[in-house]
């Protein structure tokens, strides 16, 4: 049985999110459950379009207001369901207790405000009565922490390179010392060498400040470097989750996850071609009945096309696959029917 307790900082249960336009309904997130432990890092892995960003935005309720709708589910942060509180209270949380770093640093900063002002804004929003000198001090502090000379707080974003910009974005996110940092592919847009730098910095800060992190990425290597826990998403569902050991080296593995690992180029093998997973992710406005991965799965069975698999739990390792369903391996507890 899972430890649910004070250990869990963020607990998402059965989240369902759609994007509804006049033409179609996109089922972006279907029955997603995951948890981030206090002080730990959860890596959320998946291909583009799996629903990772949507999940992240849902936590902060930053979905586009015209199309995004959270249909059902629970997002508990420190025991409080974020989907039930009002907007004003949500604003207290945003940037302050939960902060988010987005993917593209080139456009994430306001070009006409100085970097220092943008960081200061984050601080001011949540510390109304703080005197100016104190704010300035904090800004300089945080800049130093991310490896930027404090005097540069008077400069504008266009005067920074991509990697530096991302550091600024991270500085903004960490300026109020949040309990949870959501990082949506923070290094994807950067060069490989800078990637390593920024990742290291994130790791350092996380360690120093004790921040929990939800790190969204499609790069399994990063997950191995930084994360404690992993959740793999496919077509809007979490098809496998657990600790990094469970998922990377455990004995059970979801066929999709297997496919992901197999498609990584391996320096040691003699293979002449890469081994991608055949097929494409299903159209989220037109999902198949049954298991969402069935159309592409090598281990496909009849049951897969007929019924949605339920999540099976093996200790800290959870899988959503008929291969491991009741009768194949001991299922512990149940998530209800």
């Amino acid at each position: 049985m899972e430890n649910k307790g004070e250990n869990i900082l963020l607990d998402i249960e059965n989240l369902k999110v759609i994007y509804k336009t006049d033409l179609e309904t996109v089922e972006a997130v279907n029955d997603v459950s995951l948890a981030v432990r206090r002080g730990r890092t959860l890596g959320l892995v998946g291909e583009t379009g799996a629903g990772k960003t949507t999940t992240a935005l849902s936590i902060l309720r930053l979905l586009p207001s015209t199309t995004g709708r959270i249909l059902s589910g629970k997002i508990e942060f420190n025991g409080e369901d974020l989907l039930k509180i009002d907007e004003n209270m949500m604003r207290v949380i945003r940037g302050n207790r939960i902060a988010m770093v987005f993917q593209d640093p080139m456009t994430s900063l306001n070009p006409v405000m100085t970097v220092g002002d943008q960081i200061a804004e984050a601080i001011e929003l949540h510390n109304g009565k703080m005197p100016k000198e104190e704010i300035d001090r904090r800004v300089e502090n945080i800049l130093q922490m991310v490896g930027i000379i404090p005097q540069r707080r008077f400069e504008y974003p266009h005067q920074f390179s991509g990697g530096m910009k991302q550091r600024v974005v991270i500085a903004i996110a960490l300026s109020c010392e949040p309990e949870l940092l959501i990082a949506d592919e923070p290094t994807t847009a950067l060069d490989v060498t800078i990637q390593a730098q920024v990742l290291n910095m994130i790791k350092e800060l996380r360690d120093r400040l004790g921040t929990a992190m939800l790190l969204i990425t499609h790069d399994l290597g990063i997950v191995a470097q930084i994360c404690d826990d992993v959740a793999v998403m496919y077509a809007g569902e979490v098809i496998e989750s657990g600790s990094v050991e469970d998922v990377f080296t455990g004995d059970a593995r979801h066929p999709y996850t297997a496919g992901l690992f197999n498609s990584l180029p391996d320096l040691h093998s003699q293979a002449k071609r890469l081994k991608p997973i055949p097929g494409l992710m299903p159209d989220p406005s037109n999902l198949p009945p049954g298991c969402v991965f069935a159309p592409r799965c090598e281990s496909r069975m009849d049951a897969c096309e007929a019924h949605r698999p339920k999540t099976v739990q093996r200790g800290s390792h959870r899988l959503r696959c008929h291969l491991f369903g009741a009768g194949q391996a001991p299922a512990v507890g149940g998530q209800g029917r």
Binding site: A99, P111, M113, E121, L125, I172
Partner: peptide, 21 residues
């Protein structure tokens, strides 16, 4: 623009987001 999203993520009110950023 993305920086508007960043501002919202900071916890800025909708009004600040519009009128300032």
């Amino acid at each position: 623009q993305d920086y508007v999203r960043t501002a919202r993520a900071k916890g800025a009110s909708e009004r600040t987001v519009i009128w300032k950023h």
